[in-house]
Simulated assay, not measured.
Amino acid sequence: MAKRFFRSWLPSPEQVNNLKIMKIFGDKALNPTLWYVNRKSISKAMFIGTFWGILPIPLHSILIILTVLIFEANLPIGLLLAWVMNPLTIVPILIFAFWIGSKIYHVHMINKEMLLGVFHQITHWIKNFGHGHIDLSLAKILATGLLIEALIFAVLFFAITRIYWRWSIIKKWRMRQNCK
């Protein structure tokens, strides 16, 4: 059941390998283990895609591909999670990361003006290719919160995938036993 669910909406290896970014990795991206739909491969991909997808860093797709190649997880799931998660949830992710960071460093939650100031500093820094000023005290709070948030959600998605997969198998076994 879980296997059928994931296979139903996963792109084919040819579709993913036709992406320009995949040309960098050559034949390594055609490794059949990167396309397996099983409990281990999918749950590892959920962890990898969630972790890198939460971190708002440039070229996170390349980091996902490298991590997937190292840990032999499902490539399309890892990429799809980051592509869906990052643009749709970036504002709540950053707010929650600031909240986590403020709890860790025992500071009051940052107000809207401070938050907008940090976002302005970051966008200015990115637009000028690393030249400019960033208030590192706020960046430290954000970076710490983002890393912890990424780990929490990655572990959570990993566990949910494993639990769902196990539940699906038990349900299938019970249905098979009831038919006898």
Rank of each mutant, 00 (worst) to 15 (best):
N38Y: 01
I21L: 12
W99L: 10
P13D: 08
I42A: 05
N18Y: 08
K20F: 11
I77W: 04
I163N: 05
K140L: 15
H120Q: 14
I110R: 05
I90S: 13
L136H: 09
I21S: 07
H131M: 15
L59T: 10
L138D: 10
F158S: 01
G78D: 00
I126M: 11
L30P: 00
G49W: 01
Y105C: 07
P92K: 01
P56A: 11
I42Q: 02
I163Y: 13
S43W: 00
T123A: 10
L63G: 07
A143V: 15
W173F: 15
R176K: 13
L34M: 07
H131L: 15
S8E: 08
W99K: 09
E14F: 08
L69W: 03
G53W: 02
Q15S: 15
Q177W: 15
K3R: 13
L146T: 04
P11E: 14
M85K: 09
R7Q: 14
I163H: 09
I65F: 02
I64Q: 00
W173D: 15
I160M: 13
L19W: 14
A82Y: 04
I170K: 15
T89D: 06
H133S: 15
I100W: 01
I95E: 09
I100M: 12
W35T: 03
I148G: 04
N111Q: 09
L63K: 13
